[in-house]
Amino acid sequence: MTDTTNVHGTFRKLWPHEQALFRDHLLRLDKTSRAMRFAHGVSDSFIEDYARQMADAGSTVFAYVEDGQVRAAAELKKLGPIWGNEAEAAFSVESAFQDQGLGTEMMGRVIRAARNRGVHLLYISCLASNAGMQAIARKHDAELRFELGEVIGEIVPQEANYFSLFAEAVEDRMDFMMAVLDLQRRVGLAA
């Protein structure tokens, strides 16, 4: 079990209209965190383009939201034009929020979402120096292998069942409600 006792925000799915929240999170990543997320340094314009394609790429993005801002994100990305046997997971956590169990919590959601979409093999790729991501992958029974300065993790999700589908459907409803409340809060602050 992950210790998230010091966590004061919420874990939820991001919706297509929340691309700006995702973008702002990625822009706040420090140089090291950006390199860990993208396996190399990236510019602000790269991040703006990347975030703009969040919904177009068919990704499902889970986030840890605190005070109306995304502080950590986990992406489930399909490999190809439709959901198939394989998918990829990617994670980013702002430096002030690292080592609080956020990645581990979101990994569970990513695995369940992959499972519910018929994914049979979930890939995680990170730099060999990213010990945190490797630890999270191991907690979820990933098989890790080292290749040219990178670590490739493979997770085989269980088959979807009524309970996994029901849990995601219930969470989606709650997540949408939380997104509406976050939007109301942001609009109220801007007024």
Rank of each mutant, 00 (worst) to 15 (best):
V93I: 14
T2D: 08
G149T: 01
L148F: 12
E18T: 09
E48W: 00
V170Y: 07
Y50A: 06
S33K: 07
T5H: 15
G153M: 05
A20S: 13
A20C: 10
K78M: 11
D172F: 02
A73W: 00
N130V: 03
A160M: 06
L181D: 13
S92G: 09
V110N: 07
L76W: 01
A113Q: 07
M177S: 09
E18R: 07
Y50R: 03
E88K: 11
G68T: 06
A113F: 08
K13G: 02
L121H: 00
M54P: 06
M54L: 04
F46T: 00
F163Q: 12
G58T: 02
S59N: 14
A160S: 08
A113N: 11
G118N: 03
D175G: 00
N161A: 05
Q134K: 14
V65T: 11
M178L: 14
Y64K: 13
A128G: 10
H120F: 12
E168L: 05
M106A: 07
G41R: 05
K13W: 15
M107K: 04
D30M: 04
K77G: 06
E171M: 11
A20R: 13
R145N: 09
A87I: 09
E48M: 05
G132S: 09
A190I: 12
L121N: 01
S125T: 14
W83E: 02
R112A: 10
E88Q: 11
Q53R: 14
W15G: 02
Q98R: 08
F46Y: 15
S45A: 11
R37P: 07
E171Y: 05
F22W: 07
D67K: 12
S164G: 02
G80Y: 11
M54R: 01
A113S: 10
L27T: 12
A169F: 03
F38A: 09
T10M: 15
A51F: 00
L165Q: 10
L21C: 05
H25W: 03
I136G: 01
N6T: 12
V187R: 12
S43V: 02
E150K: 11
D44N: 11
E171R: 02
E75L: 03
Q53V: 02
V151N: 00
A142C: 12
K78W: 08
E150D: 14
R186F: 09
A179T: 13
F62A: 04
D67E: 11
A63V: 05
E18L: 06
Q134P: 08
D44A: 13
R117F: 01
N6Q: 15
F176D: 04
A51Q: 01
N116I: 09
S95G: 09
S59P: 14
K31Y: 10
N130R: 02
D99Q: 07
V42C: 06
R115V: 03
L76H: 07
R23T: 01
E75C: 00
A20T: 15
G149E: 08
F97N: 05
M177P: 07
T4S: 15
T104C: 12
L29Q: 00
R12E: 04
V170S: 07
D56R: 15
I82Q: 14
V151A: 02
Q98N: 05
E147P: 12
E88L: 06
P81Q: 06
R186M: 06
E48L: 02
S92A: 12
F38H: 08
R112Q: 10
R52C: 13
P157H: 00
Q184P: 10
L165R: 10
A55G: 08
D49R: 10
E147I: 12
V170I: 08
H25S: 09
